[in-house]
Computed example of a mutant assay.
Amino acid sequence: MVYDIKGKNALVTGGASGIGLWFVKELLKSGANKVFVLYLHTENAGDISKQLNIEYGRECTCFQKVDVSNATQLENAFKTCINWCEQLDIVINNAGVMNDGKWEMEIAININAVVRGTKLAFQYMGKDKGGKGGIVVNLSSILGLQPLAGCPIYVATKHALIGMDRSWGTPFHYNRTGIKVLTMCPGVTDTPLISEAHGLQGDDILGRECQRELDAMPTQSPAHVAQSMMAMITKGETGSVWICEGGQPIYEVEIPDRLTLKRKN
């Protein structure tokens, strides 16, 4: 069944810059009613919100400064969002960092905050909690499906999200909550997360290898990733994992079970 974004309300973490801001723009372009945006470091977030509200002729965005790794701040943001838009339909856990040099922070943002954001989405949207169901999208990466020598901890965080989302996306949870859980795995995208990655691995050798490996991969624009996100939201089935790489059309990837993968001696 095709999901219609028109008239829906969304929450996007890390949505004031990079891919996240393009997600916000594409949601509005696709007819979303309101988008609640969480950000941390963007200095002109207020101006961006005003510009979008002017462009769409209504109070369609609300930007709130939040550290997603802070449990209290994140939960309060969800409460504020519900008070503002009354009903939440789509949650995109986009915020992430690629910084093995500060791996504890990396895990806190890339895993812990996404787990918490997903659970809060279930709490506020789940049919079993009095909600109307909805969609949760978590941002993994193509590096959640392959190794990369230069940033092993980042790779681990993205592998973790795929396992979690496929589990949340099982019929057991969907039948109970009415929430589809989708995973998007973008390839190398022209954003600061990629361009600054080589200097954030805590080791010059790792940094150089990280840069070499990333430079060998095809690149794409954040606008293409955002357009692909809308396509995935409208047609994705719960528990599905999607790849968007090199500016090519997004596609669903099938992950074989362990028996299929068993190596024959």
Rank of each mutant, 00 (worst) to 15 (best):
I162H: 04
D128N: 14
K158P: 08
G187K: 13
K119M: 11
G178K: 09
D128Y: 04
G150T: 01
Y174L: 13
S140Q: 06
M164K: 00
T189G: 11
A160L: 07
V136T: 04
V155T: 13
A197D: 01
V181K: 09
L148Q: 11
W168Q: 08
C151V: 10
G130I: 07
M125G: 02
L139K: 14
V114K: 05
P152C: 13
G202S: 10
G117N: 05
G126N: 12
G126P: 02
L120V: 03
P192G: 00
I205S: 14
S140V: 05
H198Q: 12
G133L: 05
G126R: 10
P152L: 13
D165Y: 09
A149Y: 12
I179H: 09
I135N: 02
A121C: 11
D204M: 13
I205E: 15
C151I: 11
E196Q: 13
V114G: 01
A108T: 05
T177E: 15
G178C: 07
A121H: 02
D165L: 12
E196S: 14
G169L: 13
F172H: 08
P192D: 00
D128F: 06
K129G: 09
G207H: 10
K127F: 09
I142M: 15
G144I: 04
G207L: 02
M164F: 15
V115I: 15
G117L: 09
K119F: 06
A108D: 14
S195C: 03
E196I: 03
Y174T: 15
S140M: 08
C185Q: 09
S167V: 01
K132C: 06
H159K: 03
G126E: 05
I109V: 14
